[in-house]
């Protein structure tokens, strides 16, 4: 029942980029990013929670959806490892 309107929306392609490597993920605009994160981390062979995800310079929260962030088809999402700083 509730699935119907979701299916009408077109799926979008996300480019997830880590260190020059690129992974394509196809998602619905209302998929929560938690799912996308898990998929991306699996593809890059990392444990969950390893990456920080950034879209156009802004952090993405797990509860956000591509629709919330106005992400369009083919947009790029960057992954970063945690940055730590204390000394050299």
């Amino acid at each position: 029942m509730s699935q119907e309107p979701e299916d009408v929306k077109p799926k979008i392609n996300l480019k997830v980029v880590y260190d020059g490597e690129e992974v394509q993920i196809k998602v619905k605009p209302n998929t929560k990013f938690a799912k996308i994160f898990a998929a991306a981390e699996q593809r890059f062979g990392k444990e969950s929670g390893t990456f920080k995800f950034v879209y156009e310079g802004k952090r993405i929260g797990k509860e956000d959806t591509p629709g919330d962030l106005d992400i369009e088809d083919g947009d790029q999402i960057d992954c970063f490892l945690e940055q730590l700083g204390g000394w050299q």
């Binding site: 310079g57 802004k58 952090r59 919330d68 730590l84 204390g86």
Partner: peptide
């Protein structure tokens, strides 16, 4: 949008001599 999520792991970074992330 772009809010910072502080996690349990980040709290560890606030301990003495720990590096900030």
């Amino acid at each position: 949008i772009g809010a910072v999520n502080i996690t349990k792991g980040d709290m560890i970074r606030l301990r003495p001599n720990a590096f900030l992330n």
